[in-house]
Every structure is written in structure tokens, then in C-alpha cells.
């Protein structure tokens, strides 16, 4: 039977979640496969493995449990080896690399920060900061909303102003939060966010990052933040941490 792999930890990880529920329906138990001084969190792979909500959640849950007890390199969802011995072989083959990554990520977690605009607030902001726009809004309003062309002219200018704000605010957030982290990774871009950033943060600096977000939120009420963390360091397992933090 093929083997699903959740993540890789040092063999000395003090609290591997051996035996908890993993992916599959009914859930397959998590087991530990060892090799090269490392321990892989693994389990039987379901026959028809698909990225289902339930399994994504289980994958994340196993890694969160493991991460609470020590450093873990999270696998991308859906990694399947032929069997346990193939997992052990992979651990042995790349043991030094994985150990280096585990050392680099020790006591660190990923925090994902997503930012969006509050639409009404950002509209108020751009109109308030531009007298010409403001005059256009007023004149349209007096005309009962204005003609189709009036609306188009106003809307186009407002859209351009909001777009400029998106870019400026994304840079603002990045610049404000980056110094609080050991490394920064651009998270996959997705609809609706003006910024989607992942930060690698040492355990001792997590509160500092949260404070920095809170300061931003207070200072810029048109920005809406979603902070998720601590997360397994998904975005930093394959990166040169030193290179990323050094420039």
C-alpha cells in the first residue's frame, strides 16, 4: 500500500503525533517512519486521494499538532511514496539537507497576512484626497447621479485612484512588517487581496508582528487584515533562509 507523507521532523522531536487521525475517510492513523536520523509523519494513502476539504484539513491538523511540539518540515499536500521503505530511503538520501532546514526553521513559524480594502472606506479616502474627484462626485449627486457618461467618467477616475491605493498600500504593509520577520515570501496571489504575504517569525517575535499589524490597522482603517498563524513553515521549507533574510 502506498504511503502518504505529512512532514519531516528530527528523530529527536519530543512529541510526534503518532497515532492521531490523518487523512482518509474513515481516517487513517498517523505513524512515524524513521530513517537517516529523521522521522517522517506518514500514513496509509487513500486509494482515491483528492484534495478534498476534509483531507486538506487533516493534513494541516497533523502538521499543526506536530509543530506544537517541535520543528517540522511540512510536505505540500498530496505527497505519496510507494511504501514506507521508499519514505525511509528518501529521508536517508537527503538527510543532511532536511536537517539543515530543520535547524534553520527551529522555533520559527509562518504567519500569513492577507490585506484587503474596505471598499467604502477606501472610496471615501480617495475622494477626500482629491478635490477634483470630490467636485465630480458632488456635481453628479446634484444631478441625481448624473448621466451614464458622467458616471463612467467619475467611476474611471475613482477606479484608477483605488488601484493606485492598492499598490501603495501593499507596499506600505510589506515595508512595515518585513523588518519584524526573519524572511518574507509572497504567498500565491488570489482574488480579493491587495497583499498576501507570508512571514517567517521566531517564536519570540510573534507578538511583535501582531503588534505591528495592529498599529497598521489603527493607522489605516481602510485596510482589513487577516492574520493566520502560527502555521507550519510551508513557504520556507525550500528557500534559502539565510539568503532571504540577508539582503
Amino acid at each position: 500500500m502506498s504511503t502518504y507523507v505529512y512532514g519531516i521532523a528530527d528523530a529527536g522531536h519530543p512529541k510526534l503525533p503518532d497515532g492521531i487521525d490523518g487523512i482518509g475517510n474513515p481516517a487513517h492513523k498517523v505513524r512515524v517512519v524513521r530513517g537517516g536520523g529523521l522521522a517522517a509523519l506518514a500514513g496509509d494513502a487513500p486509494e482515491d486521494l483528492r484534495p478534498k476539504r476534509r483531507d486538506l484539513l487533516a493534513h494541516q491538523h497533523v502538521l499543526s499538532e506536530a509543530g506544537a511540539g517541535g520543528t517540522v518540515l511540512p510536505m505540500r499536500f498530496g505527497s505519496v511514496a510507494e511504501d514506507d521503505s521508499a519514505v525511509a530511503a528518501a529521508l536517508e538520501q537527503h538527510a543532511e539537507h532536511y536537517k539543515e532546514r530543520l535547524r534553520a526553521l527551529c522555533d520559527r513559524a509562518e504567519y500569513n497576512v492577507k490585506v484587503q480594502h474596505d471598499e467604502d472606506a477606501v472610496l471615501r479616502l480617495v475622494v477626500a484626497q482629491d478635490d477634483a474627484l470630490r467636485a465630480l462626485v458632488e456635481s453628479n449627486r446634484k444631478a441625481g447621479g448624473g448621466s451614464h457618461e458622467d458616471k463612467m467618467r467619475l467611476g474611471e477616475r475613482v477606479a484608477a485612484a483605488v488601484q493606485a491605493r492598492e499598490a501603495a498600500d501593499a507596499a506600505l504593509v510589506r515595508d512595515a512588517l518585513e523588518p519584524r520577520a526573519d524572511a518574507l515570501s509572497d504567498a500565491p496571489q488570489s482574488t480579493g487581496w491587495i497583499a498576501n504575504l507570508s512571514f517567517l517569525v521566531h517564536r519570540d517575535a510573534a507578538a511583535e508582528l501582531a503588534n505591528a499589524v495592529e498599529e497598521l490597522r489603527q493607522a489605516h482603517p481602510h485596510l482589513v487584515f487577516r492574520v493566520n498563524g502560527p502555521l507550519p513553515p510551508y513557504s520556507f521549507v525550500d528557500q534559502g533562509l539565510v539568503a532571504a533574510a540577508g539582503d
Binding site: 502506498s2 507523507v5 512532514g7 519531516i8 486521494l49 483528492r50 484534495p51 486538506l56 493534513h59 494541516q60 518540515l73 511540512p74 510536505m75 505540500r76 499536500f77 498530496g78 505527497s79 505519496v80 511514496a81 521508499a86 530511503a89 528518501a90 538520501q93 537527503h94 509562518e110 500569513n112 492577507k114 515570501s185 504567498a187 500565491p188 488570489s190 498576501n196 507570508s198 487577516r226 493566520n228 502555521l231 507550519p232 510551508y234 513557504s235 521549507v237 525550500d238
Partner: peptide
């Protein structure tokens, strides 16, 4: 909120098959 990280980030081992 973090689905894209679970699906698009994380360690990949060449010898393993990915779903």
C-alpha cells in the same frame, strides 16, 4: 485562508508522487 499554502507551498520530494 491558508489553503493555497497547503496546496502550493511545502516540501516536495521528487521521488514521491503528488496527487
Amino acid at each position: 485562508d491558508v489553503l493555497e499554502l497547503v496546496l502550493d507551498r511545502g516540501l516536495v520530494i521528487d521521488a514521491f508522487v503528488r496527487v
